[in-house]
Write a protein that binds this DNA or RNA. Structure first.
Lengths: 145, 145
DNA sequence: ATAAAGTCTCTAGCAGCTATAGCTTCAAGA
DNA sequence: TCTTGAAGCTATAGCTGCTAGAGACTTTAT
């Protein structure tokens, strides 16, 4: 069993954040020691690490809740899981496309820097360009992500 | 010249958000009409679109401020730009790696769903796995992103 | 000329943490 | 065994990055 501090260190999540996740129901209420301190099972570490990485990738907690529900109910009808997974996949691909464009542009800048000129920096244009944009900014819903 | 509403529509950013960016200094104070309404030059649209896309990719406003400073001072010493660009590039690549892992896993899940089984969902493992992880969770600084 | 739509400032609220205060529990050395 | 310092507890307040009113003024369209 892990104390909350050990769990936090292992997952790279701060202690108050863990308590916050418990409060909003993303993590189950753990057992307590005789002195009322939280004690976590090993598998909670997987769940918490998942949450942490998903957050870093920009998933809102509600989307993470959905993804976790896939794990929590492996017997639920496939249609539900499929819908969630497909929506998340679209969102992930949209992010990938724009991140790749940004990567390319940053690489270009760094190469140019090596040659002593940044006068024609186009970082702004590459991300400002709606041609790379997975959203329709014009009246549509935001992506589920 | 664009009114704030037109600018917002064009960039996909809400009007109060534009005023907020002005307040915190990400956007310059624009000219005003005789009736005190904001009037924006065309090029502000590029800047705002950039901010929007960078935010969607998860860059904090401070990182965006840095990136914009590259654009704002094309004559600054290359070393400064280079440092910023390289830090951002590392962060971008770390994100790309984990997003790709998640994409793969979601694809796998969807294929399995088509075959009627999600019993061995591994979404959590794929993101929980620190082998894919660009950070050192263990005592280091967070990435500049 | 007037009505509707857009804009103004100001303030308050929300998500997702993060830090502080004041107290209790635990573990490790003297 | 005692003690002392780190770690944990609850509760509350603050932070970032928006977002949504309220109530008054400006523009635009008919």
């Amino acid at each position: 069993m892990l104390t909350i501090g050990k769990l936090g260190d292992a997952a790279g999540v701060k202690v108050p954040t863990i308590r916050y996740y418990e409060q909003i129901g993303l993590l189950p209420e753990p057992d307590r020691s005789s002195g009322n301190q939280r004690l976590y099972a090993r598998r909670t570490l997987d769940r918490l690490s998942f949450i942490r990485h998903a957050r870093e990738l920009g998933f809102p907690l509600e989307a993470i809740r959905d993804l976790l529900s896939l794990q929590d109910s492996p017997d639920q009808p496939c249609a539900a899981a499929d819908t969630i997974a497909k929506a998340q996949l679209l969102a992930v691909r949209a992010r990938l496309a724009r991140l790749k464009a940004l990567e390319t542009e940053l690489e270009r800048m760094i190469v140019q820097c090596a040659h002593g000129t940044i006068a024609d920096c186009r970082v702004i244009e590459v991300l400002g360009d709606h041609a790379n944009c997975a959203h329709d900014h014009h009246g549509g819903q935001e992506a589920a992500l």
